[in-house]
């Protein structure tokens, strides 16, 4: 029969193969710029577990070593998406209209140690025991306009001391901050958990408080180039879906707590270790992950008002142009249920 009806045979074959052809449709190539930190874990997880593939996205992760570079890569359209912490530079770039914030990354959440205030041994012995007492102290930060700078700004607002009375010492990098504190050249610094704990165990510094005990805020975000948000909205939606799956896995593995409120690192976390070992620099151990795995909203919901506040603070400091408006660079439509959305 097939011999007699060759056309039918072809049709038959096509019908049989059709679903395969659909599946074989080339996936869309998408690039994200990111830092090789645990805070990027949801992206790594979603990539390794095939969540992006399932959304028809062939994701290329470009690793940078500074938050600034991550944002610049997206602004210059070298990457379609980026995921990193807010800085003054980020807001200035966003103000140029090149970026759109679309979902949350890290934030300070009660009960999750993430960033610590660390006093030098000497300052601690001299009675510097609380983040309320930063006035008159010298503090090592990475750069002017960094998240560490903003941390101090929030403290100053909350505890009513003058930010001017804190001597800020920009030393460019976290290792330099640690060296400046250990060498007794500054009274205090602000460090991520693993660095802070290392200083404390070396005996060269004392943790005098955690940021989440004093101020809650949105540290990092997932953002996209304005171009891709405007021209390929469905692609961005698919991307965010995959990211949320990664976030959910991350939260289940690393953010769970037992009945006493202690964090549990269990089977699910161990199962994700190979992914982190592949992508995170320097190579993490389960112990470092236990300390460094920071809180992220499991659905990627933003603390929207805080972003407005951050921008206003940077603008008040003269670090961000007055013409920048938060509403212009935040797109709330990709994730449902954002928190504290200003009216």
């Amino acid at each position: 029969m097939l011999k007699r009806y060759p056309r039918l045979a072809v049709l038959f074959a096509v019908a049989l193969l059709w679903p395969g052809l659909v599946l074989a449709q080339p996936k869309e190539k998408v690039t994200i710029s990111a830092l090789p930190f645990i805070s990027t874990a949801p992206i790594f997880i979603a990539k390794e577990r095939g969540y992006f593939d399932a959304e028809g996205i062939d994701l290329d992760i470009k690793i940078f070593n500074a938050a600034q570079a991550v944002a610049v890569a997206v602004a210059s359209n070298d990457a379609d998406f980026g995921i990193t912490a807010f800085t003054g530079g980020f807001f200035n770039l966003a103000g140029k209209g090149a970026l759109k914030v679309i979902a949350a990354q890290s934030r300070e959440e009660p009960g999750y140690n993430f960033v610590a205030y660390v006093a030098s041994k000497k300052a601690y012995d001299a009675g510097f025991r609380s983040p309320k007492d930063f006035a008159g102290k010298s503090v090592a930060i990475t750069t002017v306009g960094s998240s560490f700078h903003y941390n101090l700004g929030m403290l100053a607002d909350k505890y009513k001391f003058k930010l001017d009375s804190v001597q800020m010492k920009p030393v460019q990098s976290i290792p330099n901050m640690m060296a400046a504190l250990a060498g007794g050249q500054v009274d205090a610094t602000i460090l991520p958990a693993n660095n802070a704990l290392k200083l404390e165990s070396d005996g060269s510094g004392k943790i005098i408080g955690w940021v989440h005990e004093h101020t809650l805020w949105q540290l990092g975000v997932l953002f996209a180039s304005s171009k891709i948000v405007k021209e390929k909205r469905p692609l961005v939606e698919r991307f965010v879906r995959a990211y949320q799956k990664g976030l959910a896995d991350y939260a289940a593995a690393f953010l769970a707590k037992d009945s006493q409120g202690n964090r549990m690192i269990g089977e699910k976390a161990l199962a994700l270790m190979p992914v982190l070992e592949k992508w995170v620099q320097p190579k993490p151990s389960i112990d470092t992950v236990k300390v460094a795995a920071n809180y992220m909203d499991p659905q990627g919901r933003l603390l929207v008002k805080n972003i407005y506040d951050q921008l206003a603070w940077y603008q008040a400091q003269g670090l961000v142009d007055k013409s920048v408006k938060a509403v212009d660079f935040i797109d709330l439509s990709f994730v449902k249920g954002h928190r504290d959305v200003p009216k």
Binding site: G89, V144, G145, M168, P170
Partner: peptide, 21 residues
């Protein structure tokens, strides 16, 4: 002025770079 300077033209240029100004 990369290290521990909050004034100076070099510190100013570096800060402007970090802030993308």
């Amino acid at each position: 002025e990369m290290i521990g300077a909050d004034t100076g033209i070099g510190a100013f240029v570096l800060a402007a770079g970090n802030l993308m100004q």
